[in-house]
Amino acid sequence: MKTRAAIVLVTLLTLIFFSCNSKTDMPETNETADQTFEQGNIKITDTWIRPGAAGMNTAFFFNVTNSSDMPDTLVSAESGIAEIVEIHETYEKGDDMMGMRSVEEVVIPANSTFEFKPMHHHVMLIKVINDLKIDDEATVNLKFKNTGDIKITAKVIDMKTMKH
């Protein structure tokens, strides 16, 4: 009788846990442009821009793969689509507080991939000149200390759903 009660109890607990905590991870869409931009040992992939209305701010995201044995550094970004283009990072401040600040440069370590992604580093497009609507394309120039300039074309993509 005790064994049976234990089985019932375990079953109930499992059911309760799942009924209280049922989560469905939203599928991670992967609509970023398939294009790869490569120069020397630096490869840029997964480029995308959030929609942004004229006069407002938005952000550009991408991955940088450095296949060199030496680190390289992203020192700046330029684009004609916004009044100002800066490298920024989002940071946690504690107590569910979040902030954002500009950073001078980002070092891409040797033989690694660095993700400029939501809630982390991104290229901030401040006061975009024209509306950046879904499916629009824009050009951004990334300047690396060793590799030099890499011109990127990125598509404006409806907000990606993210797994956390």
């Binding site: 100002i84 507080m97 500009s102």
Partner: peptide, 25 residues
């Protein structure tokens, strides 16, 4: 909800754009 002025950017026309450190809620 807490929203505190944090970093800012000055545009070429002199406009100051403020960014808040804020409760994410």
């Amino acid at each position: 909800v807490v929203a505190i002025l944090g970093d800012s950017t000055i545009t070429p026309s002199g406009e100051k754009i403020n960014y808040f450190v804020h409760t994410d809620r």
